[in-house]
Design a protein around this nucleic acid. Structure first.
Lengths: 207, 207
DNA sequence: AACAGAAACTGGTCTGACCACTGTGTTGAA
DNA sequence: TTCAACACAGTGGTCAGACCAGTTTCTGTT
């Protein structure tokens, strides 16, 4: 490999080449990447440098390597990062407050989006599900986020939920009737009503 | 190192040990970690396995390694992840819509938080800055996010901003007077006024 | 056609060599 | 006494090679 300018590390260059290759050749989740040895030859770098790049991407949850089989693009899940990042980032006392605040606001954003986007039939269907099913708070809001139809919020919420749960807040169980009331407020398309009902569920004075 | 149960890879075990060590021994940003060779001996693993673990954490932006000096805990910045994750995750046409939607809602959330948290003096001081300074849209909203005083939103917004900018949306410049009006609406503590003014800046019918 | 075994592929871990950079201590000259 | 140069010991960076373990493919026999 050509001498790196501005002393970029070889494994970083390899990560860049991999990204480029994935983009240009249109790799999808489940697709197999070239083997370590093949990339080593193709890029004229040591196999251990290729392994370093693969390891880094694997820890991110972007690829997975299987002994005897190969290296594959993964369907990304953020949950690997939560456990990792939580150790390094949110260690101060402020974290708990920020997590709570952020999770609640994103839930509210998704309620708002759901109220805007979702048809009455879909809401009715969701209400039927809410009435006839036993679910956790997470499961209920997972459905809300689905209705909001924003993949990015789904990822963020999923990460926040995992981390929020790991912090073990004291949290009174929410009565099922209150969840139903929240869905009914969505059906009413009344923003203030939705807001009031969500605040009740989360014990907030306002949002 | 003891034989890994359920075939966990050695570098993953090393990452776990590092996380544990950082937590238990209370490492801070800027602190130096034990050297590759020392960890190799201490954990009874190959130096290349330690390097794999370090590389992975470095790519995440959690540590940095400097030749001849050592390995240090970094003050985390999400911006390394944006460039990386964007390639693998948000590749479908939906991404653009989701990014816009999410960024705008987080900006709104932070406006709302700022309106709740910030004293009139702070707002006045910010208004003075806004009047007397030349700034970009990003710089203006960076200050809003600072006023919201939520580290998590700051990180999320920073990541979203970078990615949003990389997508190169057509975006008309905002008149400085409109930024000032937004600050004034904050000073009025009138949520509807804040909302209206933000919608004007972002060309939204509602939020 | 089916099956068993060999071969070739894959990733996983490690050792060792050597290079390049940095920091520290020592030494000799001014 | 001070300062510059040098040696040394530490650090990370890259690589080759060896060997192991799992999976897939190929080949020969029945």
């Amino acid at each position: 490999m050509s001498a790196p300018e501005s002393s970029t590390k070889v494994y970083i260059e390899i990560v860049k080449q991999l990204r480029n290759m994935i983009q240009v050749e249109g790799y999808q989740a489940g697709d197999k990447l070239p083997s370590e040895r093949e990339l080593s030859e193709r890029l004229s770098v040591g196999r251990s440098s290729v392994r370093e790049a693969f390891r880094a991407l694997e820890l991110l949850g972007l690829i997975e390597t299987r002994r005897g089989e190969g290296t594959f693009i993964r369907d990304f899940r953020g949950h690997n990062l939560v456990q990792l990042l939580s150790t390094f980032i949110l260690q101060d006392d402020r974290a708990r407050t920020d997590i709570k605040e952020t999770k609640y606001l994103i839930e509210w954003d998704c309620l708002w989006l759901a109220a805007k986007k979702v048809s009455e039939e879909e809401l009715q269907s969701f209400r039927n599900w809410a009435e006839s099913t036993v679910y956790t708070d997470d499961e209920f809001f997972y459905h809300i986020i689905l209705l909001a139809d924003n993949h990015l919020f789904m990822r963020m919420w999923t990460i926040l939920k995992d981390y929020y749960n790991s912090l073990k807040f004291d949290q009174e169980p929410v009565a099922k009737a209150d969840y139903i009331k929240l869905v009914d407020s969505l059906l009413s398309y009344n923003e203030q009503l939705i807001k009031d009902q969500y605040c009740k569920i989360r014990n907030l004075s306002s949002i």
